[in-house]
Simulated scan of single mutants.
Amino acid sequence: MSNRMGIVAAVVACAGTALVAGSLSTSATAAASAVQIVKATAWPGQLATATCPTGFHLTGGGGDAHGAALIASRPSDDGQSWIALAKNVGADTGLDAQEDTTSWAVCSED
């Protein structure tokens, strides 16, 4: 059984545009918006913060804990980034024992 615990969630719904498993599909009645996925990886003990570029807004996101427990995965207070944090739940549970954490921000063009 793997020690890997993680949650990856990304949901996008904007003006008839949906992102599903990396493919962009649009309805015939709505104009397609550009969708960009931004990835960030943090060193142990730091938040992984994926930020949407200028001209884009956050529509969703997710986080993944590599060999650790994901303890936070949420939008930032300003609504432009997705943050994730993980903690080691094994024998050494100190913050310095955290594994790398990855976050993804799903961004849609303004």
Rank of each mutant, 00 (worst) to 15 (best):
N3H: 08
R4T: 08
M5D: 11
M5R: 10
I7N: 02
A9P: 00
A9H: 12
A10H: 00
V11N: 11
V12S: 10
G16M: 10
G22R: 01
G22V: 06
L24Y: 00
L24C: 06
S25P: 00
S25C: 05
A28L: 14
A28N: 08
A31M: 13
A34S: 14
V35G: 02
Q36E: 13
V38C: 04
K39C: 01
A40C: 08
A40D: 07
P44E: 11
Q46A: 12
L47Q: 12
L47K: 04
L47M: 14
A48H: 01
A50P: 05
C52F: 04
C52Q: 03
G55R: 10
H57E: 04
H57Q: 09
T59M: 10
G60Q: 04
G62M: 02
G62C: 01
D64N: 02
A65N: 06
H66G: 05
G67K: 09
A68P: 00
A69C: 02
S73W: 06
D78Y: 06
D78C: 08
D78A: 10
S81Y: 02
A84Y: 09
L85S: 03
K87H: 14
V89L: 10
D92T: 14
G94W: 13
D96I: 13
D100V: 15
S103V: 07
A105S: 07
C107G: 03
E109W: 08
D110E: 11
